[in-house]
Computed example of a mutant assay.
Amino acid sequence: MADGYGIMLFLNTIAELTKGGCSTPSHPPVWQRQLLNARSPSPRVTRTHYEFDDFTLKTKSKAIPEDKLVRTSVRFGPREIQSLRNQAQNQHCTKFELIVACLWKCRTIALEIDHNDPVRFSVVVNVRNKKLGMNFPIGYYGNAFVYPAAISKAGTLTSSPLSYALDLIQRAKKQVDEEYVRSTADLMVIKDRPKYGTPLNYIVSDIRSLGFDKLDLGWGKPLYGGIPWATSDISFSNNEGEDVVVVSICLPPLALEKFKFELRNMTCTEQITNFEENY
């Protein structure tokens, strides 16, 4: 198993070899799974991990029907980003944080979730960052990420300004340090590798900087690079040119229409484009 970063290490190695520039990889693959072993002899969960909690939901909050979904992409250009920044109340944030705060709020409204139910947003965080002190070698292909969750009551999220969702997401990301990663690894052992909590959890992975759109196997760069699909609870953020961010999303038809309406109101634009029909 490999995450996006690991996949790109592999593909770049293939590119090096196919173009004939070298006979051995510049970054040989490393298999050091012990880097993410639980602490021994005493694994311990020291942080709060909302991303793995299961909640009892109100009957009004129905599960998303997996067999009746529409796959769609949302494009955010300079105009949409500026519209969101105007609502952020001078809050310092990244473009990605603005976009996902907007999507989380609009998606929650569209799904008509009971106002008292907890909703979550999980952001995928690469833990190879040297500042975390995890000391992953460059050629480590395996999974090396966590997905801390922001949590709120649905009613509070949908009735609050965008800055509220933005603040929750930023706080979730700031949790990630070496101790958070170690606590996650220990939780995997103590709770027998639980799946992330799916009820009313929305996960977005930002793959814009991985370089899928720049991969050259010897006959030029691709016309498109990235992941074009989404599931009912997972989206991916890709680049489209220098100034446009494209996010895939998947929703039931009726919820999608309401999602479009909310998104247009929030960004003051028309920017929903179908990626694919029902599947």
Rank of each mutant, 00 (worst) to 15 (best):
D54R: 12
F55K: 11
F55Y: 15
T56W: 07
K58G: 11
K58W: 09
K60R: 11
K60M: 09
S61Y: 02
S61W: 06
K62S: 10
A63D: 05
A63M: 09
I64T: 13
P65M: 06
P65L: 09
E66S: 08
E66M: 03
D67A: 14
D67T: 04
K68L: 04
L69V: 13
L69D: 01
L69K: 02
L69Y: 00
V70Q: 11
R71C: 12
T72W: 08
V74N: 00
V74W: 01
F76D: 09
G77F: 00
G77K: 01
R79H: 12
R79D: 10
E80D: 11
I81A: 11
I81T: 07
Q82E: 15
L84V: 12
L84C: 11
L84S: 04
R85W: 06
R85M: 15
R85F: 10
R85N: 08
N86L: 14
N86Y: 11
N86V: 11
N86K: 15
Q87M: 09
Q87A: 10
Q87T: 10
A88R: 12
A88I: 02
Q89M: 13
Q89A: 15
Q89E: 15
Q89V: 14
Q89T: 13
Q91H: 15
Q91F: 10
H92E: 08
H92P: 01
H92Q: 12
E97A: 07
E97M: 02
E97L: 01
L98N: 00
L98V: 09
L98E: 00
I99C: 02
I99M: 05
V100H: 03
C102W: 00
C102M: 01
L103H: 02
K105E: 01
K105R: 15
C106W: 00
C106H: 03
R107M: 05
T108E: 03
I109V: 13
I109C: 03
I109P: 00
A110H: 01
A110E: 03
A110R: 00
L111V: 06
L111K: 00
E112M: 07
E112W: 05
D114E: 10
D114T: 05
D117Q: 10
D117N: 09
P118S: 05
V119H: 08
V119D: 01
F121C: 10
F121T: 01
F121G: 02
V123F: 03
V124E: 04
V124P: 01
V125E: 03
N126M: 05
V127M: 03
R128W: 12
N129Q: 13
K130D: 08
K130Q: 14
L132S: 05
M134G: 02
M134D: 03
M134F: 06
N135D: 14
N135Y: 05
N135I: 02
P137Q: 08
P137D: 10
P137A: 11
